[in-house]
Design a protein around this nucleic acid. Structure first.
Length: 280
DNA sequence: AGCCTGCCCTGCGAGC
DNA sequence: TGCTCGCAGGGCAGGC
């Protein structure tokens, strides 16, 4: 599911109930998701407070007063919901509710539930001052909405890459947080073919692409993300950026820019949607 | 080192 | 109606 805008939408929904809240209880209902949970997962969380809620690329970060950071990755189908009214009496539990956090914060008690049918998601605990060097982030590229990201930084990261630009943008070392949807959308807006060699996206093309990546992500965050099958915000609200897709999942429909028919191809096993007329 | 493929897992829609 | 197949937003390991 979730690319950067969806994870940011989740972060914004969680922040009011999680930030400053004490983790009263953690119910870990299985030994693993995609990976095993870290050792003594629940014990390392219980009783501590969440200092702040953060995000890096597609990863949700809860900085804990113990000095560790809880890392949550939603994989493809992970979903986090908040039930502010939940009490200890008979919470209704759904299938694939794998972890339940009971928190007590400025806004009172709340139950935060992690649900993930495909279990491609995972959680980890890492020392907060080692976060940048941890395995998840050590090689990761710049945040596309941050100051480190620019057309110069982008063309530098793409320099010499003998791979289609579509695949290069999915590489989290080039820019962090893009997934299949927003790569397709950004390339369409920038008028760049997904098949173009990454190393040729320099100069004017990189100057078009970098700002467009920011725009697409920013607009998607404002729209509450894109809800295809599983994504929803923490309160169950659906995002609506999917209604603004220029190309994604629009094969056979007409391009909003030039009216040509949107095409689909498969690149390294993943669907690419594009306009063969205005993307060059 | 860079690049590619396959795979982890469940659910859902299309097609027969 | 009921099955089988292909495909899905991500990222890792193992191959070349």
């Amino acid at each position: 599911m979730p690319e950067l805008p969806e994870v940011e939408t989740v972060r914004r929904g969680l922040a009011p109930v999680m930030e400053g809240a004490t983790i009263v209880d953690v119910d870990q209902r299985r030994p693993d998701l995609r990976f095993a949970f870290p050792q003594k997962f629940t014990q390392r969380l219980k009783g501590w407070r969440v200092a702040s809620l953060d995000r890096r690329a597609k990863y949700l970060l809860a900085h804990i007063t113990s000095g560790e950071t809880l890392i949550i990755h939603l994989g493809m189908s992970g979903r986090v919901t908040v039930d502010p009214k939940a009490t200890d009496d008979q919470p209704q539990s759904k299938t694939h509710d794998h972890v339940v956090f009971d928190v007590d914060g400025p806004q009172g008690r709340a139950r935060v539930t992690y649900n993930d049918p495909r279990r491609f998601g995972f959680m980890d605990l890492v020392a907060t001052d080692e976060l940048e060097n941890c395995s998840h982030f050590a090689k990761m590229g710049p945040e596309p909405l941050g100051n480190q990201f620019s057309s110069e930084a982008l063309s530098e990261a793409l320099r010499g890459k003998n791979t289609p630009i579509k695949q290069a943008l999915l590489d989290q070392r080039v820019v962090a947080g893009l997934g299949n949807i927003y790569v397709c959308e950004a390339l369409h807006r920038a008028g760049i073919s997904p098949k173009r060699q990454a190393k040729s996206v320099i100069g004017k093309r990189a100057e078009r692409l970098a700002p467009v990546i920011r725009d697409v992500l920013g607009e998607a965050i404002e729209a509450g993300g894109s809800s295809l099958k599983d994504f929803a915000a923490t309160d169950g609200e659906l995002g609506y950026f999917q209604h603004r897709f220029g190309v994604y999942d629009r094969e056979g429909q007409s391009c909003g820019i030039c009216q040509a028919t949107i095409k689909k191809l498969v690149q390294s096993g993943r669907s690419t949607f594009y306009c063969g007329t205005c993307q060059r």
